[in-house]
């Protein structure tokens, strides 16, 4: 039993990573990773929403008429996202401002619909919950890697604190301003995919 749950939880981390393998949820992943802090908040929010939307949809999956399932799924997701949005606005206003429309866009984050369609509609609630959390973590992992490198190389800080010593700047080191700009996020993901597939060769596309 335990190993089955562990498998559900760890599969989305590497072999079925939502971003680098399933190509789900790219939009938000790239836009919120300029700094580490919003990336972590976003990762947490998405993990919570995927987990609970999977749980709710899986518990009512037998009563949803197939023809209107997309609307039902969207309503469940939208309700959870409104909750997350209100909590963020109340307790972390500055981060919520930085994430701007991307909290709302969790609704259309394809990870959610993708996992609901592919997993929650056909599996038991508890399994689905684990799957949702696993996919949230797999997504969050890439977000945190991206946020780490983009903030470190782009602004020389982590969580807003300076980590690259002054002496290095004095010696002529310059922050790579390109890392903060949107295009480098795409290229960084490309490089992450490259590294991941060099290690895990069965993911290579023919």
């Amino acid at each position: 039993m335990a190993s089955r749950y562990l498998k559900l939880l760890t599969k989305p981390l590497n072999d079925e990573n939502p971003i680098t393998v399933q190509v789900l949820g790219i939009c938000s992943a790239l836009a919120v990773t300029v700094q580490l802090k919003p990336a972590i908040v976003m990762a947490l929010s998405v993990t919570i929403v995927t987990g609970f939307s999977n749980l709710i949809i899986a518990s009512i999956r037998n009563t949803i008429p197939p023809r209107i399932r997309i609307i039902v799924q969207l309503v469940v997701i939208a309700t959870l996202v409104i909750l997350v949005d209100q909590v963020l606005k109340a307790y972390m206003y500055d981060v919520s401002k930085k994430l701007s429309v991307f909290v709302g866009l969790i609704i259309t984050n394809c990870i959610l619909m993708g996992r609901l369609e592919a997993f929650a509609m056909a599996n038991k609630p508890w399994d689905s919950f684990i799957d949702g959390i696993g996919n949230g973590i797999g997504y969050g992992m890439i977000l945190i890697i991206l946020g780490f490198f983009r903030e470190l190389l782009g602004s020389g800080t982590l969580f807003g604190y300076r980590v690259i010593p002054e002496s290095l700047y004095a010696a002529g080191y310059i922050n790579n301003g390109l890392m903060i700009l949107p295009p480098m996020a795409l290229i960084t993901v490309g490089v992450i995919i490259w590294i991941q597939r060099s290690i895990n060769r069965k993911l290579i596309e023919k």
């Binding site: 190509v23 995919i193 023919k206």
Partner: peptide
């Protein structure tokens, strides 16, 4: 294209380069 970059990887990088051009 290097095998691990084929498909998705290179598509990401090309989009990035296009985005730089659009800047």
């Amino acid at each position: 294209i290097p095998a691990p970059l084929k498909g998705l990887g290179i598509a990401f990088i090309m989009t990035g380069l296009l985005a730089i051009a659009f800047m």
